[in-house]
Write a protein that binds this DNA or RNA. Sequence first.
RNA 1: GGUCCGGUGGCAGAGUGGUGAUGCAGCGGACUGCAAAUCCGCGAAUGUGGGUUCGAUUCCCGCCCGGACCUCCA
Length: 449
Amino acid sequence: MHSLVLHNSLTRRKERFEPIDPQHVRMYVCGPTVYDLVHIGNARPVVVFDVLARLLRRLYPRVTYVRNITDIDDKINARAAELGVPIATLTGRTTEDFHADLAALGALPPDVEPRATGHITEMIAVIERLIASGHAYAAEGHVLFSVPSYPAYGRLSGRSPDELLAGARIDVAPYKNNPGDFVLWKPSPPELPGWDSPWGRGRPGWHIECSAMAWKHLGESFDIHGGGTDLIFPHHENEVAQSLCAFPGASFARYWVHNGMLLVDGEKMSKSLGNFITLREALARAPGEAIRLLLLRTHYRATPDFSDAALTEAKRELDRFYRALEAFPDIHAVDPPTQVMAALCDDLNTPLALSAMHGLADAALAGDFEAACGLRAAGDMLGLLQAAPEAWFRGAGDDAAEIEAAIAERLAARKARDFARADAIRAELAARGVVLEDGPRGTTWRRAT
RNA sequence: GGUCCGGUGGCAGAGUGGUGAUGCAGCGGACUGCAAAUCCGCGAAUGUGGGUUCGAUUCCCGCCCGGACCUCCA
């Protein structure tokens, strides 16, 4: 059995992964705030942790993968007000869009997908524990976490408390005892969503939901917590602080795994910068698997620059894989090849795994059936090569019969050695994006990229 | 400014203290009526200056460049 090594942000080095319970691995990943369509930067952690979940399921008997939906947030409130709809309408619709987009990327659903609004009770319980143990205080309808009460604050993000105080660049609210203190609960005016609490009608701060949901679904201590590097501070730092103070003696997440930022034109793609490409737009330009491959061609901690050229290249790479599978309609399930497993077990080295897959494709193209089976199994680990080769090459379209007819006409012309006519037909098809391939078993066709 | 990450062929992108994977593109050849696909072959890279070492792309230090974070963010 391969042993898994993961880069742990907590120690900034690769560590051998040793689950708390080898019979049951537990992972929590930060999901989206549902106020708008996700962009392809948001898609990266989804794909990365989907691969990690697939790998964990291969290595361990049971895995619980939790990915939350943040459905209460000021951006949601603002957008709902703008649209003049209740927040539940906006978040429900956006969640459906999210699910549809991810399905197109071949991402399997997590085992649990908790929503913040369904866990207000748990959040209040965590906050009460923090107040009772002196780690939080109520002031002017707010409840704040007291950063000085937790000396290890800053450990995950590698910052000293002094530095964090000095660096506090927001206006310090008057009800804060300390500039670094952050909100656990805040009052809601009547026009905004709110829940009754011991501190009056209000709504949760951003960070508390993940502490509450991880606790509810995975327990006080669990194995892996994932998300983008941009979440390390303040979100994950605050989560750790809350959870460790609310549940002393527990470890919260033992391994923190963070994916790097996807760039576009050299800058982070983000909703706030407005330089994003929605996943839906990308899906209109290329098949979901091409986008997925684009995201997996780069190691998850690196920062790839998204471009149409990269998308095209990913599509071509998949073309070769599918061509290698094409000749073997009766592929059967086998264990993923050792080289692929070894690459994935080394901190999810997907580029190296893909390189091994190219070797398998070469062998399959040379007629090696076992290699084709291995390639397909490797594809299953990465969530790639899930289509039938014919469907991949011919794609959607209702003009197949028309194309077949043109091919038949061209065949007749070729038999009559009327190559001018045959070439004219091929050129017409090419103009429509259809490429012909004359092989020993007749002429086949595919749609060009 | 502080903290952290990174700089590898035309592009993308791994590994490695001892003659630098893989993919895409390009070039030559085979196959083909011609193509396409496939196959064979070719050219092409470790930001910069030091240090450690028999030997550094790899380890250490300085510099330059790029990116992330520094309380909205995947």
